[in-house]
Every structure is written in C-alpha cells, then in structure tokens.
Design a protein around this nucleic acid. Structure first.
Lengths: 342, 342
DNA sequence: TTCTCTACTGTGAACGCTCACAGATGCATG
DNA sequence: CATGCATCTGTGAGCGTTCACAGTAGAGAA
C-alpha cells in the first residue's frame, strides 16, 4: 500500500511491474520466487522495473493463493510475573525475531498469561492464521504443544516437552551435562558440602539439572544429603527462601548449585543477609547465563545456555517443519562461565 | 485452514456457510461484519451454520480486498541491552498484546536494535504490511516516528516525542508532576540535601523529571546545588556510578530522587556498598514502578507509571488513527507508591 | 529434414472474500 | 393505486497474486 506520486493511495502491482519491464505477470512472479526458468535479460529487466516502481509484493494476495501466511507465532504460556521477572524471555524473543527477520517472516507475539488468553490464542492459531508456532513455556508439561500438533500446526518448543507422546520438535540445552560441569567445578574448587536449589519437578530444568547434580556427587563419592536439596520455582524470591531454609538445615554448607540465575540472585541476597561471604564462605553457581547474571554482586558464575543458537535452531527447525520435515530434537551444549561467585 | 473431517486440508469458506445456512455469500459477509441490514432469522441461521461448520474467516482474502491487514506492529527501537535489562518493556508488551487481543488484532513484534534492523523494519512497515505502529523508544528524539508518519502510516508513540514537527500521537505519564510528588515527599520527610539522578537529556524522562525536581526545590526555597544533579542513562550500572559520584561530591546527601527504578536499583547498591543505610541515612525514590522496584532491598518507593492504561490508551488511539482520527496527546497521571526506601 | 528435449514465456483460472449495485419486499404516505 | 422509503437479499466483479498449462524458440539427435 504505497502512496503514488500523486499522494493517492494506490499500490503498484505485479501488473505494473510487468508492463514496465515488458514481460508478463508470470515472469515477474517467477523472478520474485527464486528466478528459475527466467532468462538473465528478463531477470534484469524485472529487477530494474521493481526498483523503479518501488514495487513490494502484496502478501495477502500471495497468501490467499498459497494458503500460507508466511508468519509464525511466538507463544509464551507463562504467568505474567515470570515474563516480567525473567530476562531470558527477552533474549529468546530478541533472537527469534532476528532469525525470522532474516527470512522476512514476521513474528506474532502471543502471551497467554491466563486460561482465557490461552484459549483465544489457540483458536487464532488453529484457524490457520500462522504457519507455525515457536512455543515457550518453562512448565513444559503444558499440553498446548500436543494440542497444536494434533491440530496439524507445526510446533517447535523451547525445552524438552515432558511426558508428551505428540511429536513436537524441540530445542534445548543439555541441562544434565551443564549441571554436571557446574557441580564438578564446585567440587574441584574444594567444596564438599554442596547444596542445590532445583527448579520445579515438572520441568526439564528441574529434573535434569538435579540429575546432573546427583551424577557428580556419585562420581566423586560424595554422600547425597537430601536436606541439601531444596526446590524453587525459578523466581528470585523462591531462591531467597530456599537459601534461608538451606542455611537453617545445614549451616555448614559451602556451595550451592542453583538451577536458574534468577534464583541464584535470590540465594546471593539471602547469603549476604546472613553474613556469609560469597565465594569465600559459600560458592554459588547459577544456570542460564541470563543478563541478570551480570548484575549480581559478586558477578555470578553460571552455566551458559546458548540462547542465540537455541533461537536460531528453533526457527530453522520450525521452517523445516512447515515445509514438511519431521519433528526432531536438538540438544545444544552448554558452557561454564566463570565469574566471581564460584 | 482447517482440516476437514477426512483429515484432508480443506478450508470451509464463506460459500459453504452460505449454502449450509440457505442464504447467499453477501448475507454471510454482512453477518460477519456487524450484521447490519440482516434479518434476525438470517442472522441466526448464519451463526448456526458458522458454528456447525467451524468456519473461520480467511483474513488474507479479506485483507486483499479491504486493503488493511488488521494487524499492528510494536516497534521497539532500543539497544538490546536495554531491552534485556528493563522489565518495563515486558509490561508494556504484555499490556499491548492484551489490549489488541480484545479486538482480535495480532501484534507483530519488531525489535530494531541495530541500524540495519531499523531499516528492515521500516521497509516492512512502509510496504503497508501493517495498519499502524505502536512505537516505543526511550530515546524519543528518534526520527522514526516522523518518518513513518510522513509515509502515511498511523503511529502512536509511548512517551512524548521530542522536537518533532510531525504529528505523531503519543501517550505518556505526567513526568514532571510525578517527579514533583516524589521530591515533595522527600522534602516532607525532612530531607534537605536532595540529589537527583536524571535520565539522558534527550529524553522526556530526562528533561521533565528534572524540571519537576527543580520545581519543588524552588517551591520549598531550597537552593539548587548543581553538584547534586547527575545524569544517568536509565541503566542500573549508570545509577551505581552516579551514586558513587554523588557520594564523593556531596557526602552529606540525605535523599536521592532517581529518574528510573533501574537506576534506583543501582543507587541502592552503591549506597549499601558505601555503608549508608536506606532510608535511615539516605532516602531513595525511583520512577516507573517497574517490576524491578519490588525486588530491591529495601523495597523501592517510587512513582508509578500507569503502564496498563498507557498501553490501552496507545492501542485505542492507534485504532482511532487507523480509522482516520487526528493524532492526539494523552498525559496520564502518576501515583506515588510508598514502600521502604523513602 | 524431422523429431525431441530443454529453456523460457504468456494466459486464464483460481484463491475467498467484500463491495457496489440491482432487485425484492413490506409499509406508510400521497 | 401509485410512490417513496427503509429493510433486506442475491449477484457479479474484482482485489493481486500464484499455478498449471499451453505454447514458442533454439539446439541437438535421428
């Protein structure tokens, strides 16, 4: 919908380009869509005409006939408090828009904080208004993935979907291995009373990171003291209360592996409040390498999730699924980032 | 694009509904678009048919003929660090999607962190792929608003656009008055050496909040000590260095009005590090009432920006502009939120 | 030469919807 | 009884694209 030179709303169509270039609509269309079976001269003429006229394709007309919208939804099913608190979502969102922009595909943001919104968004997606869905929800038992999959909508989730028989593709960091590298690091710096603050047990982060913790204890011949294991919900506040509980149960704790940076932030607060020095008295290791990890004092040693790669993989996989590929699982390696807290 | 009962991709069209309801396409279309000039019986028959067939309108076909996309862009022109750090964007984003969802209008998220992205997004918007733009950028000297306006795209900005002759509508909180109420509060709790950490001087938050600060000093007969005025860039880190500078320049400072919660967070950190107790030694007041304000210790006394109302006003105004309304300016009142820091 | 194959091009027919218009009906008015 | 008006309904056209198909030209093979 460009303004013509006369200021009147008048869009230049493929027809105008064809006339300008002295070819037919079909040829222009072919140039637009990859340029196969088009002579170099026609190709050039069309491109020149496009540049001269300022033509841009009418996506609606195209979508009407192709039956695809050339857009994808980013569906976030999280309570809004989490969305407000956790900058990881921002990182993910940013990287996904970037990856999609490279393909000229717009991202429709859908935030399903409530049940009503969830339904509304699902209805919209099911109606076929988007080609696929990037699904983000830490609570990955959420059946929304399977539901969409059952409706024939390509879905790629961020994080391993739990207990789903449906074949939704997903991209995730290697939680278990990441946890292992962190706990191993704590052990190697001489810590022997290593506690952990886990995520909710219905999330892969809650399960696998705890498993990694147990792996290393076993590996190093350290006894597993269940009182050193406290569950949080990924929020900063829950990290704080978890640390309080930990200090009460085991005042001799000398390291804490925390399953998220946000919770680690809370743990740091609680520790400081209790007069423990970090890392001298207690070492603290986080998980995520979210932007929040840099703002703690001391700066947080953490396990880096490769958000950019996760995002670009999600996009790549989703576009593949839209083209008919089968769902897959991609597990990306993590990296230990040593800062000051451990 | 629903699957038929046979599992084959086959969408039910307005034609099918018409046949099912025993009326014509035109009548179905009229029911779909408000139901004027439709008899109650036809109305009912059509609605029943729609329900039976599970019909959903094909937005592309509609858009092709109406020339509108029934979607709007949310354009964020900020360096990504700010987007990652400041939860206010999340609040705004959330509230805007919500307000738009109520009208069944999808939100296209565009993040222009770099110049290249800015260009790409502008091109997309100019191409007419969206009906309007919700513009968010703290750096409101940004000419992107005028550029879009000049291209005939309806724009509503968040925050007062600075030094723009173009007629972009905007919604903002009453920065000056909000600052006044906070500084007045500090004065009334007995503080006499009140410093301020301002935002960048090319933002309304930087200018107007400082003006409010000056207003109250004058009003109360307090001398304006320029060494008590330090500029930040809204980031937590800048708040921290600003506070360091402040303590060095004026060790007797007993209150700080900070132009954003994020910076206030930094100020709090610096103060604590310097051994000052808050609010006993130094009172700290923020601005925004962002989610971050609750996570500080002590909890931050701040000036609440009515984000939900700002968002819904922005959406309301944008939809109006799309329908042809003239741009307007809406200034919303702020509210002092007393917590622990002042 | 004649036939086939490949590379390229143009054309009509959709896609599913809205819009303008023409027609029909019922009711009050002249 | 004709006229006007308001309410309601159906029909054809067309939005701007892609797609399938038919067709052309030139090169090489039989």
């Amino acid at each position: 919908m460009n303004r013509g030179t006369d200021g009147k709303r008048r869009s230049v169509t493929i027809h105008d380009v064809a006339r300008e270039a002295g070819v037919s609509r079909g040829t222009v269309s072919r140039v637009l869509n990859g340029g196969h079976y088009v002579s170099p001269s026609a190709q050039a003429a069309v491109n020149a005409a496009i540049r001269r006229t300022g033509y841009v394709v009418n996506r609606h007309a195209r979508s009407l006939i192709t039956g695809k919208s050339d857009s994808v939804a980013f569906l976030l099913t999280e309570p809004q408090e989490r969305f407000f608190e956790d900058p990881n979502f921002n990182v993910l969102l940013r990287a996904c828009t970037q990856a999609l922009a490279a393909q000229d595909i717009p991202l429709l943001l859908m935030i399903a904080g409530t049940e009503a919104e969830r339904r509304r968004n699902l209805r919209y997606i099911r109606a076929g208004h988007v080609d696929g869905v990037l699904l983000v929800s830490s609570h990955s038992g959420d059946p929304v993935g399977s539901e969409l999959d059952a409706a024939g909508v390509p879905v790629v989730a961020c994080g391993k979907p739990l207990g789903q028989k449906a074949k939704v593709g997903y991209v995730a960091a290697d939680d278990r291995d990441g946890a292992r590298s962190m706990v191993r690091h704590l052990y190697e710096s001489g810590r022997r009373r290593i506690a952990t603050v886990t995520g909710p047990p219905d999330t892969p982060g809650g399960i696998d990171r705890l498993a990694g913790y147990r792996d290393v204890l076993a590996e190093c011949g350290l006894p597993v003291d269940e009182s050193l294991i406290v569950a949080g919900d990924y929020s900063r506040a829950s990290g704080e209360t978890a640390a309080d509980l930990l200090l009460e149960r085991a005042p001799d704790v000398d390291a804490v592996f925390v399953a998220s940076d946000l919770m680690a932030h809370g743990v740091l607060n609680a520790l400081t409040r209790a007069g423990r020095r970090v890392p001298d008295d207690v070492a603290v290791g986080g998980f995520d390498d979210s932007p929040a990890a840099l703002s703690t004092r001391p700066a947080l040693t953490t396990v880096r999730q490769p958000w950019e790669r996760i995002s670009s993989e999600m996009v790549r996989m989703l576009l593949g699924r839209i083209k008919g590929d089968d769902p897959a699982a991609v597990i990306l390696p993590t990296e230990l980032v040593r800062r000051e807290s451990a």
